[in-house]
Design a protein around this nucleic acid. Structure first.
Length: 461
DNA sequence: GTAGGGTTAG
């Protein structure tokens, strides 16, 4: 990734004809790996400044290229600011720059500003294209306005504002799945199959993955078969979704068959493919099989990543083998991998399982010193440990309450796991204020499950 | 290589 960005930036230098020594730039990124983003942003800004004052003025295309690099680095607000400056310098924007700006607003969860720019696009006399509309549809989905996204999509179709392509269909299919309307998504897939814009592997993948996640693995396998029948080639993501789906329901044997199947078809399993298996074995308690899988992936020339090792750490912790888990962490560090919050949450969970609350508490503080931010899983693990001893010692119980309040203040909404561990407390303890607040909030969340779509309405009226 | 969408971790 780093290399890719560096290449992009240096390529921009090539376009601008700058003679700035590139080696030095690579060096500066290498020497300070902890702050590469800032360095890279600085580089981009410096380049922008230079371009702005160059004579003759670079074309809008060149600015678009540079800002695209920054947007890929997720510097959306900066991208928007730069376009503002470009316009102030009297350089006209084109449809590309408008689309990039709309995307920036959407990513910043400002979809309404995106629509404001749509008006500008019309005013400037460029007709918006399928990219413009896809971006806005995606923006609505990002803002949890899937219903509005579908409405816009329908309008585009019926009024023939633009010809939807695979990306646009894919965006809607994904949005529908995100809010649990898989049958609607399937309906749209069938609509594509019947029409002129045929679905490709990405739309099939979305459906297959969501069916698997929604416990409909067999249905997913049917779609998979149908897809192959239609001549659409499966890719590694298709297999990963199916293998994951099968593993989630204890169907590891079938998952292993798919692994063989994909290799026979010349689709190389990825680190993720193996990690899914490692994780599945760990959850089942067979860390030995998980370790064996790791060995196998290394033999195939794949390097286990943080997720792979974290799964192993979790596997050992689930069995209460914290010492073994710590050895895995050492193995990670030896390979220059940095344990993350998931890794540490597992370790905290492991300590709690062994009732080593002091170690758990200590680790919780230590990782924050390292700059890691605890997440809901971390809090749940710790709370579980503390509540557990809390029955015996008032001190731990008081401490758990403090963590609970801290968790809420950090903006984490309690989930089903929090709920279940609170339910195991005695009724009198549950009356304590932070706990009561959580229970009330959970009760409220359940009521907020409103229906978004009329299940009888089709896509095209 | 000027712009938009898809998958892993308790």
């Amino acid at each position: 990734m780093l290399k890719k960005i560096c290449t992009s930036v240096s390529k921009s230098y090539y376009y601008t004809g700058s003679t700035y020594p590139l080696n030095q730039r690579y060096l500066s990124v290498k020497i300070r790996p902890s702050t590469p983003t800032v360095t890279k942003l600085d580089e981009a800004l410096q380049l922008f400044d230079e371009m702005l004052h160059r004579q003759p003025r670079p074309s809008i295309t060149e600015f678009n290229r540079l800002i695209t690099v920054m947007v890929k680095m997720k510097h959306y607000s900066t991208g928007l600011l730069l376009y503002k400056q470009i316009n102030l310098m009297g350089i006209d924007s084109d449809l590309y720059s408008m689309n990039i700006s709309i995307n920036c607003h959407c990513q910043l969860n400002q979809v309404s500003y995106g629509f404001a720019l749509l008006a500008t696009v019309f005013k400037q006399g460029h007709p918006p294209d399928v990219v413009t509309y896809s971006t806005l549809i995606y923006g609505l989905i990002l803002a949890d306005q899937v219903f509005e996204a579908v409405e816009l999509f329908k309008k585009l179709l019926t009024e023939k504002f633009c010809e939807p392509n695979q990306v646009m269909y894919g965006t809607i299919i994904n949005g529908l799945c995100k809010v649990g309307h898989i049958s609607k998504a399937l309906e749209l897939l069938r609509f594509m199959e019947a029409g002129s814009c045929k679905p490709n592997v990405e739309q099939y993948n979305t459906i297959i993955d969501n069916l698997c996640k929604d416990k409909m693995v067999d249905h997913a396998l049917e779609i998979f078969a149908k897809m192959i029948e239609k001549g659409v080639l499966a890719d590694v993501i298709t297999y990963n979704s199916l293998i994951q789906g099968l593993c989630n329901f204890g169907r590891e044997t079938e998952a292993a068959k798919l692994l063989v199947d994909m290799e026979e078809k010349g689709i190389a399993p990825s680190v993720r493919t193996y990690t899914i298996l490692v994780n599945s074995f760990c959850k089942e308690g067979s860390v030995k099989d998980a370790e064996f899988t790791v060995q196998k992936m290394v033999q195939r020339g794949l390097d286990p990543d943080v997720v792979t090792y974290s799964a192993l750490v979790d596997g050992y912790c689930l069995r209460g083998e914290v010492d073994e888990a710590k050895k895995v962490v050492d193995r990670m560090v030896e390979r220059d991998l940095v344990p993350n919050i998931v890794t540490y949450s597992s370790l905290i969970n492991g300590y709690c399982k062994k009732k080593q609350i002091d170690e758990a508490r200590h680790l919780f503080l230590e990782i924050q010193d390292k700059g890691l931010i605890p997440n809901l899983i971390t809090y749940n693990s710790l709370l579980q440990g503390l509540f557990h001893t809390g029955f015996l010692k008032q001190k731990e119980f008081q401490e758990a309450k403090i963590f609970l309040e801290e968790m809420i203040n950090q903006g984490f909404s309690p989930d089903a796991n929090t709920f279940s561990l609170l339910l195991h407390l005695t009724p009198s303890i549950r009356q304590d204020s932070p706990i009561r607040t959580i229970l009330q909030r959970l009760a409220g969340d359940k009521r907020r499950d409103d229906k978004m779509f009329d299940s009888t309405s089709g896509f095209i009226s």
